[in-house]
Design a protein around this nucleic acid. Structure first.
Length: 181
DNA sequence: CACCCGGAAGATCA
DNA sequence: ATGATCTTCCGGGT
């Protein structure tokens, strides 16, 4: 619990700042460049059988061209590129017009947004994360990760389907972690 | 029904 | 080895 909130605090600063410059277009190249051995092709997590039972389109994920680099965050502490935390992922997703069919704000000033393609978003999350797992990332698990943030008020429950709200994190969590010194 | 909720425990990565 | 951040599974509720 309090273990979580330590790291959350950094996240909070990111969220509070608004959107971090995700522009990797410039020359933000640090000498610690990754060898990029297995950056894009995961044998297991990459192939998803299109269970087109719920979606109208049988084509999944080829919808929008995937570019991992646009999802990476430059960690302010280590100056290294890393995959985003889930809330960072959400912010990134929402700010990309190309993904407006996946999810978008229904009230941007309040930070309320809706996911239109839960399966695609979950799949995208798994790709962005490029984490080792033999299991498929489902919307259910994706949503569970978001729910963890309710306890920190980093996210707020809504009563609507596929709808979440970014919380007013700046008031709840910082107090807890002012003892960093 | 498909989602939403949140506990509990396991997994992954820095 | 340890902590942060999920991931996985699940029973109960809407």
């Amino acid at each position: 619990m309090e273990a979580d909130s330590v790291r959350i605090n950094e996240l909070v600063r990111y969220l509070k700042d608004g959107i971090v410059n995700t522009d990797v277009n410039d020359s933000v190249e640090y000498e610690s460049h990754e060898p990029s051995d297995d950056d894009e092709c995961q044998p297991t997590s990459d192939c998803y059988t299109t269970d087109s039972s719920s979606q109208d389109s049988s084509i999944y994920e080829s919808d929008v061209p995937f570019d991992l680099s646009e999802w990476l965050i430059i960690d302010s502490r280590s100056n290294r590129r890393r995959s985003p935390l889930i809330l960072e992922f959400l912010r990134l997703l929402l700010e990309k017009p190309r993904y407006s069919s996946y999810a978008s704000y229904t009230n941007s000033s309040l930070g309320i947004f809706q996911i239109y393609k839960p399966n695609e978003v979950a799949t995208l999350w798994a790709r962005v994360r490029s984490r080792q797992s033999s299991r498929v990332m489902s919307y259910d698990k994706f949503a569970r990760a978001i729910r963890h943030y309710y306890q920190y008020s980093a996210m707020i429950k809504t009563n609507s389907r596929y709808t979440f709200q970014f919380g007013t994190v700046t008031s709840g969590i910082e107090d807890r972690n002012n003892h960093i010194s």
